[in-house]
Write a protein that binds this DNA or RNA. Structure first.
Lengths: 205, 205
DNA sequence: CAGTGTGAAGATGTTCACAGCG
DNA sequence: CGCTGTGAACATCTTCACACTG
């Protein structure tokens, strides 16, 4: 096990390794070589070996990596062996899509609270989650000890919402609003910016 | 004007510059310095100057960059001074959210066609767009000369849908399914992977 | 002997520092 | 005089190449 700093690009790839491993496990594969891995993910095989070696020596020379053991190890590294409750703010188009989104593994990620400012929505139940008044968000998430927040409000109110979530104790934010958020250093941010993706995409066309 | 290759990180940042400029223009600002820019976007000011200089010498020494001229230039670089019609495949949670999403500038990006395989959805109209049978997608987008496709189907059918879209002539894809797509070299891909974002996020918590 | 783990080389991106222009 | 544009230094990430091991 090395003590070197881990490149964020490596962290970027871990979820992809994991997905690939889960597929292999389902198919009954017990081992995979870095070469095979790299073909499936369009990477260089040395990249795969280096990425994995940051966390210890998992591979068997001449054989490869044990799929089950490696998958479980990656889950531990990424903190996926616990349940993350999430608070959603903004139950509009995207927000309500997330509430009913079936792509999450609910043993790991689940939206357990939802907030909006629209009185028509407050009190309604969507997929088992009751929409609450956004003005109560700081207190409520502190009460429920929720550490992840999802911002699905218009850009104009995103910063305000972020501050309310931080006040309530979240340490991670997933932001769908096309805005740069100004956050305390100890709060992590993941940004999903659809318009930006499209704008970049068409540059290459 | 330099002939150097442009780093993709630079292309990544152009949409952010543009957003920032649009805000400044709205506020009536006529000029902005690289220093001011870099503060707003949490970058190094040399970075800003280098990024912009790839496309020509837009700045006035001692003054900065003309907001309107620069915004217009960036739009041209990114190919945003034309209208991009988009075909959406998969009118589920995320798909229907995208159909009614108000975050796009409709002079640039608009979902003009939608497809699904669910007979209950086919024929329905959502936000002015009629949902058509996915089996017709290749022909229909060729007919309408649509060059951008959005994949919002489950991972299991994403590759198949991608192939239908490519057959119909798209050159750019925005994929929401958590899968690696295997595409021809001349088809550009943008990936929006919410689960991956979350998995990376919690690593840092 | 196939396939890992890893120094070293190479590629790419960022920041510094300053000459030079408006 | 202020701020751009840009070589050069630095930092980071990727790939090569090969010693070594199960």
């Amino acid at each position: 096990m090395k003590e070197r700093r881990i490149p964020k690009e490596t962290i970027d790839r871990l979820p992809l390794y994991l997905r690939c491993l889960d597929k292999l496990i389902e198919q009954g594969e017990e081992n995979i070589s870095s070469e095979n891995f790299s073909n499936r993910l369009n990477l260089n095989s040395a990249q795969v070996r280096k990425d994995l070696s940051y966390f210890g020596d998992f591979g068997k020379r001449g054989v490869g990596y044990e799929t089950k053991k490696l998958a479980s190890k990656i889950r531990t590294i990424l903190n996926l062996d616990q349940k993350w409750k999430m608070a959603l703010v903004g139950v509009g188009n995207i927000g309500s899509a997330l509430l009913t989104y079936s792509g999450f593994d609910r043993r790991v990620f689940e939206v357990t609270m939802a907030f909006d400012r629209n009185p028509q929505l407050i009190g309604q139940e969507i997929d088992g989650v009751e929409v609450e008044d956004v003005s109560t968000v700081s207190d409520r998430i502190a009460e429920e000890n929720v550490k992840l927040g999802i911002i699905a409000v218009p850009a104009s109110s995103a910063q305000k919402v972020a501050e309310m979530l931080v006040k309530g104790g979240v340490t991670g934010l997933l932001n769908f609003a096309p805005t740069l958020l100004d956050l305390p250093e100890d709060v992590q941010l993941a940004q999903v910016d659809i318009t930006k993706e499209l704008e970049q995409l068409v540059y290459y066309l």
